[in-house]
């Protein structure tokens, strides 16, 4: 069976600086893969290449076997890739429900329609998605006044609107309270397993990484230095030396009672 996402030898450099080099990995449907690494390791660049925001210099990205390398984000999205952003990107002038409705309209290719009232389109589906992420009570609220954690959840709802096969989440829990983080990731993991979506996410919070991912990749200076189950990665001496030595210990000490 072809993997959901197959990345081979992905390469990107900005004027002499190699941000990402020779990255290869694959992801099977229904699995959750974490991409970690210190700041500046190339995680975001890698991510942005996957959904087409950045064109790689070399390498291929296949989605269910089809080459999607270098396609623009909107085309990648049409192929069934949803994503959330490190800094949330939502439509601040609309209500929470309208945000989801726009995504739904786009998914159903109805955005060129000029007559119907968009606020009445796909209401039930929007409500269902909002309920999924626990935002149904806030459907009428202006998006501009939401708390950051709620925006993250809204983004997830938007990202799910096109019934994606693959979900890309760039630091999905950044800026959230610890309790919220756990809730959101549990929610995501549940959705992924129920619907068979493959999830790739980057994260700084190691608790989140180790608790929810099926496997972990470690990126340093643009190169993958380790791949494996959370346990394997945690034990990898190279990883410990470069990255986890400080970060993980810090996190563990910082937050009492957590794993590790």
């Amino acid at each position: 069976m072809t993997p959901l996402l197959q990345v081979e030898n992905l390469d990107k450099s900005y004027g002499g600086v190699h941000a990402v080099r020779g990255v290869s990995f694959s992801l099977t449907a229904g699995r959750i893969l974490a991409l970690i690494g210190p700041n500046g390791a190339g995680k975001s660049t890698c991510f942005n290449m996957l959904n087409g925001q950045i064109k790689p210099n070399a390498g291929t990205i296949r989605l269910n076997g089809a080459d999607i390398t270098g396609l623009p984000p909107r085309t990648v999205w049409r192929r069934g890739v949803g994503r959330t952003f490190q800094i949330t990107a939502t439509f601040a002038s609309m209500t929470v429900r309208e945000n989801v409705q726009v995504a739904l309209l786009s998914f159903h290719s109805k955005l060129a329609s000029v007559f119907r009232y968009a606020g009445a389109a796909y209401r039930d589906e929007a409500e269902r998605l909002l309920a999924l992420v626990g935002m149904e009570a806030q459907a009428e609220r202006p998006c501009g006044e939401l708390a950051y954690g709620d925006l993250k959840r809204l983004e997830l709802a938007i990202a799910l609107a096109n019934q994606p096969k693959l979900l890309l989440m760039d630091e999905p829990t950044a800026g959230m309270a610890p309790k919220e983080r756990v809730d959101l990731m549990r929610l995501t993991a549940g959705i992924a397993r129920d619907t068979g979506i493959g999830v790739l996410f980057t994260e700084h919070d190691m608790d989140v990484v180790f608790e929810h991912s099926d496997s972990v990749m470690v990126l340093n200076r643009g190169e993958l230095i380790a791949t494996g189950t959370p346990e394997e990665v945690r034990r990898d001496p190279q990883v410990r030396a470069i990255y986890l030595g400080e970060g993980l210990l810090y996190d563990a000490k910082h937050r009492e009672g957590s794993a590790a």
Binding site: T75, R83, F91, S93, M94, Q101, A118, A161
Partner: peptide, 21 residues
């Protein structure tokens, strides 16, 4: 209309609107 919403979406966030097609 949906077109107006798409337009506002593109205005509010280019990133997000591109990411939803």
């Amino acid at each position: 209309s949906p077109f107006g919403f798409a337009l506002r979406a593109a205005r509010d966030s280019t990133l997000r609107s591109e990411a939803i097609g």
